[in-house]
Write a protein that binds this DNA or RNA. Sequence first.
DNA 1: TTATATTTTTAGTTTTACCTAAATTTTTAT
DNA 2: ATAAAAATTTAGGTAAAACTAAAAATATAA
Lengths: 220, 220
Amino acid sequence: MINYTVSEENYIKTIHRLQQYGTVTTNALAAELKSKPASITAMMKKLKAKKLLNYQPYYGFRLSAEGNKVALLIIRRHRLWEYFLAEKLQFSWDEVHEVAEHLEHVSSKKLIDKLDEFLGFPTADPHGDPIPDAQGKIKNIQKVCLTDLPLNKPATVCQVADQSPSILELLNHNQIKIGTRVEVKRKFDFDNSLEIKTKQTAPFTISEQLAKNIFLNYAE
Amino acid sequence: MINYTVSEENYIKTIHRLQQYGTVTTNALAAELKSKPASITAMMKKLKAKKLLNYQPYYGFRLSAEGNKVALLIIRRHRLWEYFLAEKLQFSWDEVHEVAEHLEHVSSKKLIDKLDEFLGFPTADPHGDPIPDAQGKIKNIQKVCLTDLPLNKPATVCQVADQSPSILELLNHNQIKIGTRVEVKRKFDFDNSLEIKTKQTAPFTISEQLAKNIFLNYAE
DNA sequence: TTATATTTTTAGTTTTACCTAAATTTTTAT
DNA sequence: ATAAAAATTTAGGTAAAACTAAAAATATAA
């Protein structure tokens, strides 16, 4: 893969994120990148010339197939570094992003693939977002109930069905909230209770009734 | 500390290296940075304005006290990343430099101090060069005989006193050469033989006679 | 010591990535 | 349908960091 400037990479990454909600407009990109519309137009011409972007003046833009490939490799670098910072250097989840913003632009393929191996090929970053593999492929993210989560496969809490004060009290007591990474360590047939573990806690047991109300994003 | 551009950091680092042999000249710096003399003069004006450099037009340059402090922190980042690449990601010693050249410009202090801790506060990089601490202090490097090296303190082979074919045969057999990192694991009083270990080998024993001929750079 | 060679600096360009202000195109609202 | 508003692009400018070519200062050698 060709190398791109830090600036180009930041544009590609941001377009990739915004285009999930439709075509991206000049103003939207300018706001997101804290830049000015005129600067956006200039860069769009450059990215179009490099075949990374489909774009007609006065209409929105979308990344080309090649542009998407580049975006996914940048996202891969970003999320692997986030995982490294949280898992190995004990950064808290809200500190990892800013540092990863800089590390992601170091573009040695060998570095990233070795880092991936060193980290044990993680499938999601500390925020629960999926990490693309070396080919830029992202595993399917599916929403599963905690009762259906395979053993020893970490997943991220994304929804709680029942919102009553009593369940929230219990979740709070167990330090479980939206975004928490959870792993099921054991299943007990007697009452279908589950032994689970989060990063902050030692393993503990929860009832089937509670587990039925917790849904998670799980990277297949 | 203020942040500097990648270009400024590369100049500072290179001046720091060259000034060990006296004042640095425009041509020497241009050759080292694969740049042109006119470009050097322009950057020297900038670094002087930022109080990092002492410099009179038409005479050589030296870093100011502040400039040296900055240089040592850049070197610290570079060497910690080299250590990380070799030790954790299994890069060979000749591959680490190029990647570290890029990683060294990510200037989060917290990142570097946490990395240092994660690596166990190493005192030398894979080439045996000393790693400055968080204050920019470098431990004294002293040349010691392998017989005098403290237990479990890695050091780098820098000299072999006897150069006869027979000793070289033995060193070759044990995969020891200039630049090899060696650690003494045990000392046996009976015959003063030493159990040592290198990165490539399991622990093995060598005679006092051989040890007496091996000298190492040891970071106190 | 004076002429020549070397080194260094100045002057003027280029490229990248940003900016402001003005012009143009598209959208929206009466 | 057309005027006003909003969005986008063009035109022209700035700063950083490189370059070439020419001028100036220093070093060296006859």
